[in-house]
Computed example of a mutant assay.
Amino acid sequence: MIKKIFSYFIPIKIYETKSVLSKSIEVTWANGELVLDSENANYSYGSLQRILRLGLKNIGYEKIVAMNHILILGVAGGSVIKTLVEEIKYKGKITGVEIDAEIIKIANAYFKLDQVKNLEIVIDDAFEFVLKTQNKYDLILIDVFQDTTMPNFLFEDFFIKRTCFLLQRKGFILFNTMILNETQNIRNKKYVSEFYNPQFQIKTIPRVEIHNELILIEKLEP
């Protein structure tokens, strides 16, 4: 409790480790809440939770509650899962895909992710999982980072088409991106401008928490 109080004045790191995939994984008290960070980015809770909450609000909580199956690519500490279950009261199935098993251990230990009953965690690469899965989803949330770096496959045509194929009718893709320079800004504009499918509608929610841009794709009525 003392650390929580002092964290309103200065961040207090309580755990630090590294994994095969991450140079640094830190659990910190910041502004009265536990957050999970990499070396240069917020991985869960804190600003990331605010970013993804805004994206979910743009979809509409009432639509989300009525969904049957949600896929999350990039779990980290699971803050968006907590938003879905605790704030939105979503009771359908959640499948979370995370490549770094060490991060899931931390999420279970510090953020009680393993207590979410309607959650299934799969340790796998997001690209590989998307290739293999036979399921269809009402919402696919893409939040895949290695520190501040986004893998190139996320912006490739094949991956875009495959994730769209995995959507149920009237489903959504919520894609969290980071823009730190003009090259990445151009990358996002290219992604949106070249996205064409009469079955889908695409829009952006720019400059969320300064550096993030959300891309929202909706599958329309046939």
Rank of each mutant, 00 (worst) to 15 (best):
Y110V: 06
E102Y: 09
E87Q: 13
G32K: 06
I12A: 02
G55W: 15
K82T: 01
I121P: 00
V80Y: 15
I64L: 09
A126S: 12
E102G: 11
R53I: 02
I121V: 12
K63C: 03
F9D: 05
E128L: 10
G77M: 08
A107T: 00
E39A: 15
K89M: 04
Y8W: 05
E86D: 15
E86S: 01
I99M: 06
D124G: 03
F9K: 03
S44H: 07
E86K: 13
F9T: 10
D37W: 04
N108R: 10
A66N: 15
F127Q: 09
D100W: 12
N108C: 11
I104C: 08
I12Q: 05
I103M: 06
L52N: 08
L141Y: 10
T28G: 07
E33H: 02
L73P: 02
S24W: 08
L21P: 00
F9M: 05
G74N: 08
A109M: 03
S22T: 02
G77A: 06
L56A: 03
K93F: 14
V27T: 04
L73K: 01
Q115T: 15
T83L: 14
Y110M: 10
Y45G: 12
Y110K: 10
A126I: 12
G92F: 00
K89I: 04
I12C: 02
L54A: 05
